[in-house]
Design a protein around this nucleic acid. Sequence first.
DNA 1: CCGCATCCCCAACGATACTG
DNA 2: CAGTATCGTTGGGGATGCGG
Lengths: 148, 148
Amino acid sequence: MATMTAAERRARAREEYDAFLKGCPTNQLLDRISDKWVSLVVSALAAGPMRYSDLGRRIAGVSAKMLTQTLRSLERDGIVTRTVTPSVPVRVDYELTPLGASLSALLVAVKDWAELHISEVDEARERYDASASSASSASSASSASSAS
Amino acid sequence: MATMTAAERRARAREEYDAFLKGCPTNQLLDRISDKWVSLVVSALAAGPMRYSDLGRRIAGVSAKMLTQTLRSLERDGIVTRTVTPSVPVRVDYELTPLGASLSALLVAVKDWAELHISEVDEARERYDASASSASSASSASSASSAS
DNA sequence: CCGCATCCCCAACGATACTG
DNA sequence: CAGTATCGTTGGGGATGCGG
């Protein structure tokens, strides 16, 4: 058992990885941030406080479950505040904390990057797809569907 | 059918959402970026070109499958370049493109943010957990496991 | 050494129904 | 209106084995 296959080393690495991540808050946070719904919620709230149902409508394809779940975790992390107004139909508002606002600035930067460079990415994709198909059949140069 | 329940509206919204996303490149890209492995790979490559196996070791808990998959999509998007050296054991190097480098700058910013604010987040979590447990049983204050 | 194909599992998500 | 609990599905992703 002195020799270790690459697979075994990977398995080992994974165990260490798990343990490592437990104690590595940065990665926890990185994980949290690279969640699809988190970025959408934070972006939506960047414009100002919103009610729960407003968020549900604003974000469109989100289920109530995920919305609540996401908001809960963000609240727990001190990214948003949750304010309950006990009127006859209960009203709940969510708002970015200063901490959340500083984060939203970064996410906005990423969004801006995406908008700025989307054309380059599209071109790269077309080139990649074209060369990939020409690899199997060098004759026909297929034109990838161009972006809108 | 004039009246629509919230659930029905959600289902509708989801259809529109799908169609909408097809034509919205920004969201495609946002999706791609908010992938766990993507951020790790791009961060790793920010330090300079690396071989496939180096990346595998550097990133630790990644499987060969996900590493390849991630690198492929990044290559397709023009974020990294893939250079094959046909030596006896094949050697493959990956490197950030200028486009990828500009993206990595943002991801590094996010990472810096995480490192800078992790303590605030931790405090917020402890506060949240403490108040949550005191809500059900005001007497026993359970101490949340503190971070390292 | 690189990476693709296959199988398989589980946790994440959506839908639904029910409380305050 | 806001949130919880439960169940069913699905696809992400890990393990393995082969091919270049």
